[in-house]
Simulated assay, not measured.
Amino acid sequence: MTWNGEELDVAAYLARIGYDGEAKPDLATLRALHRAHVAAIPFENLEIMLGRPVLLDLAALQAKMVRQRRGGYCYEQNLLFAAALEHIGFTVKGLAARVRAGASSTRAVTHMLLDVEADGEHWHCDVGFGADGLLEPVPLRTGAAMRQDVRQGEWRYGVEAEEEGVRVLRTERSEGWFDLYAHTTARCLPVDYVVMNHYSSTHPRSPFIRRPVLQRAGFDVHRRLTGARLTLTRPDGSVDEHDVPVDELRDTMVREFGVELGDDDFTELVRMHYAGA
């Protein structure tokens, strides 16, 4: 198996994401699993912030995100999701994207997403992009049908076609459409994500090594904690944001993101990344 799905404790994974329905390889299950995973497992880069390597083998992913109930970033989350889908019987293909998200120059291909077959179609799945990410799969189409405008709850997403088969995933904000990332349908293998992960977790220009980041997408609100700045964004464009005092940081991480570090890890995180603590 490409994603080592046979090694997954699927019962523990389904319990972690709060899914108690029948797990079978059809579109209804795919949608439900995608929603449940995004709701349960937050985006976070805290291993990097604690000076530890980001491990991508399935045993490490299960230990961290399932048993320890932590989050992860794109490779961790989508590799775990791919293993779960493969175990259930879906056909899963790895893809990769260039994140745009307001960038003024072309970025390297560093983001992981998935192409999943269900009910005779291919579906763009991505449980690891963070607050602006998809809540449910969207069709992965070709030609004129590639262009889409879809609603997920009160959020609006679009897919636009560019030259050479490039697809651009966008989200609508109060100021207009905002490009999230661009990708093709070229296949990536697990070893490709090992290389991307090394860059993302160690390179001086990687955004993930600068400060702690926690994010969670939701149907009613997008949550972000960047350093000490907590931002809550709602579908109507309203934004609530404030700095979280260090003595409230731990409770905020648990309440807003479901991330609870052990005493030693939390103390080290504060010491390393929160000046004046």
Score class of each variant (00 low, 15 high):
S105E: 13
T106L: 15
T106C: 00
T106I: 14
T106M: 12
T106V: 15
T106H: 02
R107A: 05
R107H: 09
R107D: 05
A108V: 12
T110M: 08
H111Q: 11
M112I: 07
M112P: 01
L113A: 08
L113T: 06
L113Y: 01
L113V: 09
L114H: 10
L114P: 09
D115Q: 10
V116G: 02
V116L: 02
V116A: 04
V116H: 09
V116Q: 02
E117K: 14
E117N: 10
A118W: 09
A118D: 06
A118T: 05
D119I: 04
D119C: 01
D119K: 01
G120E: 09
G120A: 02
E121G: 06
E121M: 11
E121P: 00
H122A: 09
W123S: 03
W123V: 05
H124M: 15
C125V: 15
C125W: 08
D126F: 08
D126Y: 05
V127L: 07
G128W: 08
G128H: 06
F129T: 04
F129A: 10
F129M: 06
F129E: 08
G130Q: 11
G130H: 14
G130Y: 13
G130C: 11
G130A: 14
A131I: 03
D132F: 15
D132R: 08
G133H: 07
G133L: 06
G133F: 02
L135T: 07
L135P: 01
L135Q: 10
E136V: 07
E136S: 02
E136T: 12
P137N: 08
V138E: 02
V138A: 03
V138S: 00
V138T: 05
P139I: 12
L140V: 09
R141I: 02
R141C: 08
R141L: 15
R141H: 10
R141K: 09
G143R: 11
G143M: 05
G143I: 14
A145W: 11
A145C: 04
A145N: 06
A145I: 07
M146Y: 00
M146T: 15
M146E: 12
Q148T: 04
D149E: 15
V150N: 03
V150G: 02
R151A: 12
R151G: 00
Q152V: 14
Q152R: 11
G153P: 13
G153D: 12
E154A: 15
E154Q: 13
E154T: 08
W155H: 02
W155S: 11
W155I: 14
R156N: 01
R156A: 07
R156P: 01
Y157I: 06
Y157G: 04
Y157N: 02
Y157P: 03
Y157W: 09
G158L: 08
G158E: 06
E160R: 15
E160Y: 02
E160G: 00
E160M: 05
A161M: 11
E162A: 09
E162H: 10
E162T: 01
E162W: 10
E162R: 14
E163P: 00
E163I: 10
E164S: 10
E164Q: 11
G165S: 06
G165M: 14
V166Q: 00
V166H: 11
V166G: 00
R167H: 15
V168K: 03
V168D: 00
V168M: 01
L169K: 00
L169A: 03
L169W: 01
R170I: 01
T171F: 03
E172S: 04
R173Q: 15
R173V: 06
